[in-house]
Structure formats: C-alpha cells, structure tokens
C-alpha cells in the first residue's frame, strides 16, 4: 500500500514540497501527525481502538485506518480529523491494502483467518476469502490483478486473483510472515518472516522462490533479527527493512539481495514511510514510542521524534493533500 502511495506521489512530484507523516499509535488510540519540514508533531487525532494499518485514498481526501479492537476500518477526513464513517471490515482488521482502482479495500482479519474485500463507495462487503491463521501482511500488484495475504501462523503467502476474488496459489515462507510488498513494477513479491528472520523474494509470474535475504548484526543474537516492515526506493535498487527487536533497519541491495548496512533506530521498529521526494524515511519504533527519521542518501538516522504509545503504521500525506 505504501508503495502505491509512493508511485502516486511521484507522479505528482513537482507540487510536493512539504507534507506530513501520519503515524498510528496502537496503545494510545491516536494518530500523531508529523510535519516533515519542522519534524515536529503538529496534531494528535483520536481514532478507534488499537489503530494499526493506515493508508490514504489516491486523492488524499480520505484516510483509512484499521481500528483493530473496534472491529472497524475508519474513514477519516484528513483535513478536519473527523471520522466520516466506518466500513464493515470483519473482526480485528490489522492491515489492508487499497486496490489501484481506488475503491476496493482488501483487509486482513487477524482473528478470523479471513481476508475481507470491501467496496469503499457502497460500503459493502464484496467477498470474504478463507486464508491461513492470523492473516496480516497485505499487498497488491501494481496492475491490480493479484492481492497477497500472508498468514502468521500458517506461514504462507496466499495469492488472490482479484477478478474471481479467490486464492489461486499458496506459497510457504519462513515462520511468522508479517509484511508483503510487490516491488520492481510487480516483477517480484517480497515477504518478511519475523521469527524465521528472513525476507523471501518470489518471482511473481511463477510464484517460485527466487532468493532469500538473511541478516546478521554483530552482538545481536540471530533470534532477535526479526524483519517486519520494509520499503524500496522508487528505482527499486535499495530496500530498507525494519528488524523489530534488533532495533536496526537493514539497508539491502535489492539486486544482489545482500545487506549493505544496518542503521540503529528506536526500539522494536515496525513499519516505515518515505516522504514525498523519498529523501527521508520515517520508521515507527513500537517500544520506545518514537519515530526515527533516516536521511536516505546519507543512510543515517538524523532525528528521533516522540509520538504516542506503540507507534505502528506510517503513511505520507503531501501538503494540501
């Protein structure tokens, strides 16, 4: 979903000088809005219970928020911060992805082993698809034909055909997959496995495993290297991968699949979002309750911003968006 945001913001790039990073605080039931020029929290907006996944509509007129413990996806006006309405989401929505049609929302219902497809206009459930236990990671291919749900306890990526809204393939990954993204214009699917400690790279056309990324940090036990969220630069050459309780972000050459550097961030780093020109990356650090700002070109953390308790999701909103 963030990749999609990235593509769209690229298209509109000239207009995007400033902007905001929106961060969901899982244990505060709020969103912290960070101004990317001042790098300060300028607004704190109340949400439903346990907000996690967050994404904007293509024109940024609405923001969708998974309020997991309220069993709802909330639709908010980002200007006023008012909740416009809730979408029927199924129980315990954790992550979701907005289809390129800007209309269908694919939602992982963690407690029910279901992926729910909701029409954001009619506010109706289109389909519920049985997936593995504890679905979490959600991705959509840039052409919109494939949606991925990863299930944490079943340890699979489920490949959903968006025309029939049915699974057409299941591929095993290492233990506890958390996040999935189509990268390189959809040619590859990347899936992180938190307990397995790896990121698996699949060839989209064949669903065959193509590579596996491993991590190693001196002085940090292998078991603590738990990849979660990740983002690739728009040229598809560099990946930034959050390593959870290892408190580092790995910088990976996305062509050789080798780690080039590890950047120290806050504690239990979860997810991340680029700003509009992809010069800076914002990571959510769950345990330390802050956001680390990384200078992408220099590959250096440059600032820590205190947000709410247990920041989880992050999304970019352009100025005036």
């Amino acid at each position: 979903m963030l990749r999609l945001t990235a593509i769209l913001t690229l298209l509109a790039a000239p207009a995007l000088a400033g902007g905001e990073i929106w961060v969901t605080n899982e244990k505060d039931d709020t969103i912290s809005v960070i101004d990317i020029d001042s790098l300060e929290v300028t607004r704190t907006i109340p949400t439903g219970e346990r907000p996690r996944g967050i994404t904007f509509s293509h024109d940024y007129s609405r923001v969708y928020i998974c309020a997991s413990d309220s069993d709802a996806v909330q639709v908010m006006d980002p200007v006023s911060g008012e909740i416009l309405h809730d979408l029927p989401s199924g129980e315990d929505p954790e992550q979701f992805v907005l289809h390129p049609d800007d209309r269908r929302l694919y939602i992982a219902n963690e407690d029910d082993a279901i992926t729910t497809v909701v029409d954001t206009e009619t506010r109706r459930v289109i389909e519920q698809i049985d997936v593995g236990i504890e679905p979490e990671g959600m991705a959509v291919s840039p052409d919109g034909k494939i949606v991925i749900t990863t299930s944490e306890t079943t340890n699979m990526a489920h490949w959903i055909d968006t025309e029939s809204e049915a699974i057409f393939a299941n591929t095993l990954v290492d233990s506890r997959p958390r996040h999935a993204e189509f990268v390189k214009d959809g040619a590859e699917l990347w899936v992180s496995a938190e307990i397995g400690g790896t990121v698996t790279v699949f060839d989209t056309a064949t669903q065959a495993e193509k590579a596996k990324i491993h991590f190693e940090i001196k002085g940090v036990h292998q078991d603590r290297l738990q990849p979660v969220g990740f983002e690739l630069t728009p040229d598809g050459k560099t990946a930034f991968i959050a390593l959870g309780p290892a408190n580092h972000v790995a910088v990976v050459d996305a062509e050789t699949y080798e780690v080039e550097e590890y950047l120290l961030v806050g504690r239990r780093v979860w997810h991340m979002a680029f700003d509009g020109d992809h010069s800076r990356l914002f990571t959510t650090n769950g345990v330390s309750g802050d956001v680390t700002v990384i200078d992408v070109a220099a590959r250096k953390p440059v600032k820590t911003i205190k947000v709410g308790r247990f920041p989880w999701g992050a999304a970019f909103r352009p100025e005036g968006g």
């Binding site: 082993a113 593995g132 236990i133 306890t153 079943t154 489920h158 299941n170």
Partner: peptide, 10 residues
C-alpha cells in the same frame, strides 16, 4: 485446528 487450517491449503 491450527494445523488443519494450514493443511487445507496443502
């Protein structure tokens, strides 16, 4: 039950 849910895909 957890095994069965995974197993049905396999």
């Amino acid at each position: 039950a957890d095994n069965a849910t995974t197993g049905k895909f396999l």
